[in-house]
């Protein structure tokens, strides 16, 4: 029994996350439907089509697993797992409150960032091994994109790590008497944009762009293997949205309600933001994507690091000057950007 306990906990965690993912899928159907002035699914399961994601999953399980004739068979088969397994491993590092967590990693932040870099490899593997031009184009778009957005994502987190002087996610949350979003508004903005690119969600879904590349790296996939790519994306969403909550929004801190409730209120806030930005912003072109990544996000993240580091070293009580200077620079930058873009 004592040996089986960790496995039971892991199983319970994965089932909990999976049931949330089923809810994500339904919520996204409904939100994108309402935004487009439709109802979204209404029939399956009678009440507002609540069973639609379950029906989709059953459909994936029943479909034939097709492997194209000129595919690299082994790599084609392995690719979905290369992306999926590391993203599930990330769940081990995410704390929900200071009591409910799997393991308090010393280097949790690095652990999450390092494992999420496997997503791109699985896309390149799948896209290249399919032996299809559209897949290959999608794969290389994914490679270029993740390479340019991993950097701002990591640098945005670096500011938070400097403030809390620890890489443990529990430690970072315990340090936040003031939420880090107040001290690091630039870092938070960069993180939120880079996160959407990292998750390959619209407006950054260039690698799967249905209207240009059919479905990018996943054109040739069907059945369960295709579902693995999709599920991996949702697990990645779980991981990065939790990271946003833990790093910038004070994790489980909040008045009156228990910590776990606060965590999920903030978590679903981030989820709603992602769902709305998916349906309200058009897809960017590849060159716009590179411009945004290298000319705006990366310099912003570097400016954020320089300001944070300078104030931590020079000023004894750096919280107020840091928050003020970050906000002033952010507003000035946004104003200038509007002027330039006009």
């Amino acid at each position: 029994m004592a040996i089986a306990l960790p496995f039971l906990i892991a199983l319970a965690l994965v089932i909990f996350v999976l049931s949330n993912i089923v809810f994500f899928m339904w919520a996204e159907f409904k939100i994108s439907g309402r935004v487009a002035d439709r109802f979204g699914p209404m029939e399956t399961g009678r009440w507002h089509g609540w069973a639609q994601p379950l029906a989709d999953i059953l459909k994936f399980l029943n479909k034939e697993d097709i492997i194209p004739a000129n595919a690299d068979k082994l790599i084609f088969r392995v690719a979905p797992f290369v992306g999926f397994i590391p993203v599930v491993m990330v769940l081990a590092a995410i704390p929900y409150t200071n009591k409910i967590f799997v393991r308090d990693f010393d280097i949790a932040v690095f652990f999450v960032i390092a494992l999420s870099s496997f997503t791109f490899v699985s896309m390149v593997m799948g896209g290249w091994a399919s032996g299809n031009k559209y897949s290959l184009l999608g794969a290389f778009r994914a490679a270029g994109m993740l390479l340019s957005y991993e950097l701002p994502l990591g640098l945005a987190i670096a500011g938070v790590v400097m403030l809390s002087a620890t890489l443990s996610l529990i430690g970072i949350v315990q340090q936040q008497t003031v939420w880090n979003i107040v001290l690091q508004p630039i870092g938070f903005l960069v993180f939120m944009v880079a996160m959407q690119a990292e998750l390959q969600r619209s407006p950054f879904d260039l690698a799967v762009a249905e209207s240009e590349l059919v479905a990018g790296y996943s054109v040739e996939y069907s059945g369960m293997r295709y579902a693995m790519f999709q599920l991996g994306e949702f697990f990645g969403l779980w991981a990065l949205a939790s990271m946003a909550v833990l790093l910038f929004l004070g994790g489980w801190h909040g008045p009156y309600l228990p910590g776990i409730v606060w965590f999920f209120i903030k978590f679903y806030g981030i989820f709603l933001f992602l769902a709305f930005s998916r349906v309200s912003v058009p897809r960017v072109r590849p060159d716009q994507l590179m411009d945004l990544g290298w000319k705006i996000l990366l310099p912003s993240a570097l400016v954020n690091i320089v300001i944070t580091a300078t104030l931590i070293v020079l000023v004894p009580h750096y919280q107020v000057p840091l928050a003020v200077s970050e906000f002033v620079i952010l507003i000035a930058a946004l104003y200038l950007m509007r002027r330039v873009l006009k």
């Binding site: 280097i107 690095f110 960032i113 390092a114 870099s117 490899v121 290389f140 490679a143 993740l146």
Partner: peptide
């Protein structure tokens, strides 16, 4: 642990991406 994470981030992630780019 730190070395392991760095190894994954740099060699498995970034260097592989670089090689893929060179091939592209």
């Amino acid at each position: 642990d730190f070395m392991a994470a760095m190894q994954v981030l740099i060699y498995a992630g970034a260097v592989t991406a670089m090689v893929v780019f060179a091939l592209m």
